[in-house]
Amino acid sequence: MEQMIIRNVRPWGADPVDVVVEGEGIAALVPATTAPAAEGVEVVDGGGRLALPGFVNAHAHADKSWWGMDWVSYGGEATTQGRIAHERAVRGRLGIPSVDATERVLREFLRHGTTAIRSHVDVDLGVGLEGIAALHEAAARLDGAVEVEVVAFPQDGVIRRDGVLDLLDRAAAEGAASIGGLDPCLIDRDPVAQLDGLFSVAERHGCGIDIHLHAGGDLGAFEYDLIIDRVRRTGLMGKVNIAHGFALGQLAGGRQEQLLQEFSELGISWSTVAPIRSAPLPWVAMRELGIGIGLGTDGVRDLWSPYGDGDLMRVALDFARLHGVRYDEDFVEVARLATSSAARYVHREVHDIVPGARADLVLLDAQNVPDAIVRAPRRALVVAGGRLVARDGEVLL
């Protein structure tokens, strides 16, 4: 078994230690030393840097980026329906999805310190399951440095396109960890049919559901109620995630509190990309109730938006700003949302700098965790699965 010692690092800003790695996992943390290592053991000098677990991107769209291509000007209407139509009209000309384009996105994630992603992958009548195959092949090219979990995502709607539910069923049968959904009221305009269809597939295959909800206010709350009811009836506790869910931060106290209690009871989690004009989430109450919150990059330079660079630390900074974070302990909690607390989004029992965890570490030139979030400095070193995979922002693979 290959061995590595990552010397003189400060996990979460604590006292310096050496991280002993065996194979893909962390074997031990020992006091920092300069003693010679045993023959054959690779030694990586951490230089006293701050060490964080590898970032976990809980909401990506790695299959649909034009990163690395010539600039693509924004076109089409700036509505959900408009973006769907524009993407369907243009993606073929850009060769989306493709293995090469997806690999370029994964490399951007990796050089910024992301070592695990949960990626929504478009599944529709035009591309079938090609995007899922492209994502798996791209990840294989990086030899598993970025571990990927697939959400088969019906970006063009579920019920309004005959055959999409069959594609989702096939994706789940072939190993997709989750199936997605999209705005049951606004896109399909038949929330009962969409949700019944999705929950039927999830029950049949034992997969999760990760559903995009953009509706605000009472309409968004109504969709939450429908999902809660179906989780109770199907017993899919702990297997449903709501992405975006903009309505939650807009609801009045009593209604919000009632929903939070039900989310907690049923293990319904949340993922957000912390858009700057959205209503802040009740994230402290969610944390106290054990409701999972994951951070994600969403799309990176795709046909929905020209923004994004794959850096989850910048998303953490946006989250901190949106929620008015000021105190050191709250900055640390935000960093945990992007790292250790996000283990559930990629089905890991533990994801941290502790013995027994996969050896995924990010080293940064920062005094402490708050300093790292506020400045988002270049990643000095990235270790993934016990291998040094990036240095000074450049992927070594």
Rank of each mutant, 00 (worst) to 15 (best):
R107W: 04
D45I: 06
G47M: 04
A140L: 09
D166P: 00
E262F: 08
R344M: 15
V72G: 06
T339G: 10
G180M: 01
W283M: 10
G180I: 02
R104G: 06
D318F: 12
L364I: 09
W12D: 05
P282L: 07
V44E: 03
V105K: 08
A320K: 03
V30M: 04
R91A: 08
L337H: 03
I26F: 03
D302Q: 06
A62S: 14
D15Q: 14
V30P: 02
G253D: 14
I187M: 06
A221Y: 07
L381V: 15
H61L: 06
E149H: 15
G249C: 10
D371N: 11
E87A: 07
G23K: 02
N241Y: 05
C185W: 11
A384C: 09
Y327N: 09
I159Q: 07
L337F: 15
P282T: 08
A176V: 13
A58I: 02
L260I: 12
G181M: 00
K239C: 05
A320V: 14
D18Q: 09
A133H: 12
G267N: 02
P97A: 01
V43R: 02
G128V: 10
T114C: 14
L248H: 01
R326C: 12
D196A: 14
R287I: 07
L363E: 00
L182R: 12
F319V: 12
A279I: 08
R314H: 09
Q3K: 15
V192G: 04
R93N: 07
V284T: 14
R118A: 07
F109L: 15
E223K: 03
R287M: 06
V382D: 01
P53I: 11
L322W: 00
M237G: 11
V350S: 06
D15V: 14
D298I: 12
Q258F: 09
G294V: 08
A171W: 03
R358V: 14
A78S: 12
A60F: 02
R277G: 06
D169F: 03
D225Q: 06
H61A: 09
M69I: 04
V332W: 04
R88I: 11
G126D: 13
F246M: 06
H61W: 04
E39S: 15
R314Q: 14
V44C: 06
V150D: 00
S178Q: 12
A285M: 11
V284E: 09
I268W: 02
S341H: 07
H214V: 10
L198E: 01
G206L: 10
G220A: 03
H212D: 04
A32I: 12
S305F: 04
S278C: 13
L259C: 02
R378Y: 02
G92F: 08
R232A: 05
P36V: 13
V201A: 06
G144I: 02
